[in-house]
Amino acid sequence: MAALQALSSALVLLLLAQHARTARASTLEDTCTLVATGSWEAAHDYDLCVKTLGADPASATADELGLVVIAVRIAGATAKATGDRIARLQAAETSPRRRLVLEQCAKDYALTVRRLGRAARELAAGGDEDMLTEAATLLEQVRGTPVRCDKAFLFRAGERTPLTDADHELNGVSWLALKILRHCLNNGAK
């Protein structure tokens, strides 16, 4: 009888654990479905969302706002890595025009890293609606950083940008964070 009770208890715990995992995955998947809805590239947006946010173990237990924090942190890491890459390019650059453009890009990426850091801090603090709105403004400001650098190379140096597809991921991740955050703001989530 004791063995049967122990087995029953273990089975109940196993079912509860499975339900909890399913519920957590559901938040990520539901949020990614919501982000992709209405987009002409819905399948791509959904896959990008699940792949990007799901890569962080914290996404397993995060609510929507927690997913925004994760996306902002990923965007910050991406921007920092690109800024570091630009610094390496600057160190090796001999062309004065390219050096000037790289300096401009480095400043833009440094500002982007600071803005994303501030947005992450405000979001992680679980701020009020004003703080969430400020975080959304910061995310709007960082979107397009890679494109600004690309254009600077084209117009000032007359060349293609040295930025790679990986450097351009900043736009996708910051857009993802912004879309989820706007949903949170529209639905009163904090």
Rank of each mutant, 00 (worst) to 15 (best):
S8I: 09
S8A: 14
S9Q: 08
A10W: 10
A10N: 14
L11V: 12
L11P: 08
V12W: 05
V12P: 01
V12G: 09
L13D: 14
L13S: 10
L14F: 11
L14V: 11
L15P: 09
L15Y: 09
A17C: 13
A17Q: 11
A17F: 15
Q18G: 15
H19E: 14
H19L: 14
A20V: 04
R21T: 13
R21M: 12
R21A: 15
T22G: 14
A23R: 09
R24C: 13
R24A: 12
A25L: 10
A25M: 11
S26T: 13
S26E: 08
S26W: 08
S26M: 07
T27P: 03
L28I: 11
E29K: 08
T31W: 00
T31Q: 02
T31D: 03
C32S: 06
T33N: 10
T33H: 05
L34I: 07
L34A: 05
L34G: 14
V35C: 01
V35A: 01
V35F: 01
A36F: 00
A36V: 04
A36D: 01
T37R: 11
T37D: 12
T37H: 06
S39K: 04
S39N: 09
S39T: 03
W40K: 13
W40F: 11
W40A: 14
E41Y: 13
A43D: 10
A43V: 07
A43G: 07
D45S: 03
D45H: 05
Y46F: 14
Y46C: 13
Y46L: 13
D47M: 06
D47C: 05
L48E: 03
C49I: 04
C49H: 02
K51E: 15
T52R: 04
L53S: 05
G54L: 01
G54E: 01
G54F: 07
A55S: 15
A55G: 15
A55M: 14
A55D: 13
A55Y: 15
D56H: 08
P57F: 07
P57L: 10
A58T: 14
A58Q: 11
S59A: 03
S59C: 09
D63L: 09
D63I: 06
L65W: 05
G66H: 00
G66N: 04
G66M: 02
G66Y: 02
G66T: 10
V68K: 00
V69K: 05
V69M: 05
V69Q: 07
I70N: 02
I70T: 00
A71F: 04
